[in-house]
Simulated assay, not measured.
Amino acid sequence: MKAILTLCLIFLASLLHAEALPDPQGDVILSVSGDIAVTNGEGVARFDRAMLEALAQRTTTTMTPWYETSRAFSGPLGQALLEAVGAQGQTVRIFALNDYSADVPVEDFQSHPVILATHADGQPLSIRDKGPLFLIYPFDEAPELFNEVYFGRSVWQIARIEVLD
C-alpha cells in the first residue's frame, strides 16, 4: 500500500513538473498573467525570445494598413502561447510598451492562425518597427478581417498579456 501511495505521489509530481514553464534565461520580452494555470513566477508566465521561438511558429505573408507592401511576418501562434500558459479565459487584454491596450477574444486565436510576430521579412522586429511583438492576423487569407475592428486588436510593441474571465 505504501509503495502504491509513493508511486501515485511521484506520478502526480511529474504531472505538475511537466506543466511548469522554465525560467527565462534571456531578457523577458513578454509576461502573461490573469486566468492562467501554468506560470514560472508568482502568478505570471514570463517569456524570453528563445521560449517564444520554442512554441509552434507560423509565417503569415499579408498586406497591413501599417506598411506599403506585403510583408512576411513570423512568430509563435497565439493559440500556442495560450496553450503553453493554460489560459482559461474568454478574452485577452494585450498591452503595448506605451500601455495602449486592446481586448481580443480568445476565439480569434482559435478561428484564425493569429501570430505574435517577432520577425518581418526575416528580420527581428525592433521597437522602432513595431516590435518586439506585433499581433498579426492573416488579412490576405481572410479578407473579412481587413477592417477597423481587427486593426484595433493588432497591437504592436506588445509587452504583456492579461487573460480575463
Rank of each mutant, 00 (worst) to 15 (best):
residue 34 G to Q: 04
residue 102 A to K: 05
residue 132 P to C: 00
residue 43 G to V: 05
residue 160 R to V: 06
residue 39 T to P: 01
residue 59 T to V: 08
residue 49 R to F: 06
residue 76 P to R: 07
residue 53 E to Y: 01
residue 165 D to P: 15
residue 145 L to T: 12
residue 128 R to G: 09
residue 155 V to H: 06
residue 15 L to Q: 14
residue 46 R to H: 07
residue 109 F to N: 14
residue 64 T to V: 11
residue 132 P to R: 01
residue 21 L to R: 13
residue 50 A to C: 14
residue 158 I to V: 12
residue 4 I to T: 11
residue 103 D to H: 08
residue 30 L to Q: 08
residue 13 A to V: 02
residue 141 E to H: 03
residue 156 W to I: 02
residue 29 I to H: 00
residue 88 Q to W: 07
residue 57 Q to P: 08
residue 136 I to Q: 04
residue 134 F to N: 00
residue 81 L to W: 00
residue 20 A to D: 03
residue 86 G to H: 04
residue 128 R to M: 05
residue 112 H to I: 04
residue 73 F to S: 02
residue 64 T to E: 12
residue 3 A to M: 08
residue 5 L to P: 13
residue 126 S to G: 09
residue 89 G to L: 12
residue 87 A to Y: 01
residue 67 Y to V: 13
residue 72 A to N: 03
residue 59 T to N: 00
residue 66 W to Q: 12
residue 94 I to A: 14
residue 110 Q to D: 13
residue 73 F to D: 03
residue 44 V to I: 08
residue 16 L to E: 15
residue 60 T to E: 12
residue 59 T to P: 00
residue 155 V to P: 03
residue 9 L to S: 15
residue 58 R to G: 01
residue 42 E to R: 02
residue 154 S to E: 12
residue 70 S to Q: 12
residue 7 L to C: 13
residue 78 G to M: 12
residue 59 T to H: 00
residue 60 T to G: 07
residue 68 E to F: 08
residue 55 L to H: 08
residue 110 Q to Y: 05
residue 75 G to P: 02
residue 62 T to E: 06
residue 41 G to W: 03
residue 40 N to P: 11
residue 127 I to V: 13
residue 117 A to H: 10
residue 96 A to M: 07
residue 51 M to Y: 04
residue 64 T to S: 13
residue 59 T to L: 01
residue 144 E to I: 05
residue 71 R to S: 01
residue 31 S to P: 14
residue 51 M to F: 07
residue 157 Q to D: 06
